[in-house]
């Protein structure tokens, strides 16, 4: 009981209650996050519905190859995250630490690829707010596609992926601090809860990408 009392916050009756509160709190927060990204997806849907050809034209300029690799990287990171939770639940400190660090590494890989991708776009003259460098092919221009509408796609692309990357950075910070804790093998019961709820967050960020990928990279390929 002494080990339990050291990790139980004063206002909870038992660890069960603390675990329940932490899990529910994270789910409520994820609902908030879903609606936060939901505003961006709503804007995307409205504009794509208004100017479908412009969105498809813009999408074809994204790097499908890098986007696909990144999707794979994130899916693998979700697996390592799930394995980290598994190890933490069974109090396997070394395994938990290793999987946490692996997840951070995969997250870093994702962000580096993303930076390379952004870099390519910038050298092509495509950056948030750019219109002058967007050239619409004549056959699409004949169908009423304007550079403005193409630029709107990039506004949403950069805002959505930028916010997504920010969420990943926050997640990686959380995972790193957890890895330090588990490596020291301290606070195991409570640390397992922390790994679990941080895992929920990490999976959520993955889910956002699961929708970003087809909606931004995979349209207009035919």
């Amino acid at each position: 009981m002494s080990s339990e009392s050291s990790v139980l916050a004063h206002h909870f009756d038992d660890l069960e209650q603390q675990h329940e509160a932490a899990t529910l709190g994270m789910w409520a927060f994820l609902v908030t996050e879903l609606l936060f990204f939901g505003g961006l997806f709503t804007g995307y849907t409205v504009y794509r519905w208004r100017t479908p050809l412009a969105f498809e034209e813009a999408s074809r300029h994204l790097d499908l190859w890098l986007g696909t690799i990144n999707t794979g990287v994130l899916l693998v990171s979700s697996l390592t995250m799930a394995l980290a939770v598994h190890a933490a639940q069974l109090s396997r400190h070394r395994a938990a630490t290793m999987y946490l660090l692996l997840t951070v590494l995969l997250g870093a890989g994702f962000l580096i690829i993303k930076m390379v991708e952004y870099g390519h776009k910038f050298t092509q003259g495509i950056y948030p707010g750019s219109i002058e460098n967007i050239h619409v092919p004549p056959e699409l221009a004949a169908q009423g596609v304007q550079p403005n509408n193409v630029a709107l796609f990039y506004s949403f692309y950069f805002t959505t992926t930028g916010l997504h990357a920010l969420h990943m950075l926050i997640g990686m910070g959380l995972l790193l601090s957890l890895a330090v804790r588990t490596a020291r093998g301290r606070l195991m019961g409570e640390a397992a809860t922390r790994v679990e709820i941080t895992g929920l967050y990490w999976h959520f960020v993955d889910i956002v990408w699961i929708f970003v990928f087809p909606l931004y990279y995979l349209i207009g390929l035919t």
């Binding site: 609606l35 936060f36 939901g38 505003g39 804007g43 948030p128 707010g129 403005n148 630029a151 805002t159």
Partner: peptide
């Protein structure tokens, strides 16, 4: 959160990235 993303989009558009401006479609 939807208010947050809406005012964030206004802030983004004030930095010159078209989102709501009809002149930008």
């Amino acid at each position: 959160p939807v208010l947050a993303i809406a005012v964030l989009m206004v802030a983004v558009e004030r930095m010159g990235v078209g989102i709501f401006d009809p002149a930008l479609g």
